[in-house]
Structure formats: structure tokens, C-alpha cells
Amino acid sequence: MLRFSDAVLSKQERLSRWGFLGLTTAPLVGAVLFNHTGTPPFLLCPFRAITGIPCPGCGLTRSFLAIARGDFENALRMHLFGPVLFLAFAGAAVLMGLELKTGRRLRHPPFYSFNSRIQSWWWLGGIYLGYYALRLYSLFQTGEFYINPLKTIFLRS
């Protein structure tokens, strides 16, 4: 059950909630809109376009678009963390909206006890980078790189 504190949100807290609400809803709304209008060219990954190597976030946009279409199998295929981030953004947007509507701060947001037990989240970054390394290895094995980065490094020597 969600419980709100008795203190009213200050003007600064309301502004920060509005900003956070905008940041969390933008990818969700964009995924829905771009499914109907087509993906614009500015959503292409500049890192991959320059190097031929996908960045750790490559596939997240396509995963979000697949989720907005209801295609969860392709969403997981595009990026394993896509559905997790989509749910996190949606949950954060709902919580920010509730705080703005009530004008009060949540006393103990969901996952509060889980977050207080885990002092450091560095391991989550490690899991993400490990997944990225597995994706790179898989792309290297299947030959889906635009260029072969190892060949480029060794040819320059």
C-alpha cells in the first residue's frame, strides 16, 4: 500500500517531480508515436555509425518500440534490459504522477526496503556490462559487425 507523508511538496520538489516525470514519460510516449509514424533517422546510434560496434544501449529503442506494439518476444531479442527499463520508466512515471496529484511525498516508495538493504548498485552495472560483452561476442561470432575491430587494430600495427 502506498502511504504519503503529511508534509506538502515544496515548489522546488514539485519542479523536480515535473522534470523527472518528463524524463520518464518521453521514451514511453516516443515509442508509441514512432510506431505509428516510423522511426526517425536521428534515433540511429552515432557510436555504431562511426565505429561499426554497437554501444551498450544499442537495441533499447527498438526494444521499446516492440513493447509499444505488444511484441514482447522481439523486445527481449532486441535488448534484454529493454522490458525492464520500460517497466522502470512506467513505474517511475506513475509514482511521480501520484506525488504531483496528491502534492505529498511518498513515505516509502516501492522497493524501498530492497534498496535500503543493498548499499551499492555497482553490481547492476557489472551485469549490464557483462550482457554487453556477451552481445559483442555473439555479434563477432556471427559476423554482424560493420567492421571487424580486431582486424582493424592489428592491420594498423
Rank of each mutant, 00 (worst) to 15 (best):
M1Q: 12
L2G: 01
R3N: 13
F4G: 00
F4K: 06
F4S: 03
F4V: 01
S5D: 12
S5V: 10
D6C: 07
V8R: 14
V8W: 06
L9V: 03
L9Q: 01
L9Y: 02
L9T: 02
S10A: 07
S10T: 15
K11G: 07
Q12P: 06
E13N: 02
R14H: 02
S16Q: 14
W18M: 14
G19Y: 06
F20P: 09
L21S: 08
L23S: 05
L23M: 14
T24K: 07
T24Y: 08
T25F: 08
T25V: 14
T25A: 12
A26K: 08
A26S: 13
L28C: 03
V29E: 08
V29Y: 09
G30L: 10
G30N: 08
A31H: 01
V32K: 04
L33F: 08
L33R: 10
N35L: 04
N35F: 00
H36N: 06
T37V: 12
G38V: 05
G38K: 06
T39C: 04
T39I: 12
P40Y: 00
P40S: 01
P40A: 04
P40E: 05
P41V: 09
L43F: 10
L44E: 15
C45K: 03
R48T: 12
A49E: 15
A49Q: 15
A49R: 13
I50V: 14
G52W: 02
I53F: 02
I53G: 01
C55S: 07
P56I: 06
G57E: 08
G59T: 06
R62V: 06
F64S: 09
F64W: 11
L65Q: 11
L65S: 03
A66R: 02
I67P: 00
I67T: 09
R69G: 11
R69D: 11
F72M: 14
F72N: 03
E73W: 11
E73C: 09
R77S: 11
F81W: 07
P83A: 00
P83N: 01
V84D: 02
V84A: 13
V84H: 03
L85G: 06
L85T: 07
L85K: 01
F86Y: 14
L87Y: 03
F89C: 11
F89R: 02
A92C: 11
V94E: 05
V94F: 12
L95R: 06
G97W: 05
L98Y: 07
L98K: 11
G103W: 00
R104C: 09
R105Y: 04
L106T: 02
R107Q: 15
P109H: 08
P110C: 07
F111N: 08
F111H: 02
S113H: 15
F114P: 00
F114L: 15
F114T: 11
S116M: 13
R117T: 05
R117L: 13
I118H: 08
S120T: 13
W122P: 05
L124C: 06
G125M: 04
G125N: 05
G130R: 05
G130H: 02
Y131F: 13
Y132N: 05
Y132H: 05
A133Y: 05
A133M: 08
A133N: 05
L134T: 10
S138W: 15
L139D: 11
G143S: 04
E144C: 10
E144T: 13
E144D: 15
F145I: 06
F145C: 03
F145V: 08
I147L: 13
I147A: 14
P149I: 03
L150W: 09
L150K: 00
K151Y: 11
T152L: 13
I153H: 01
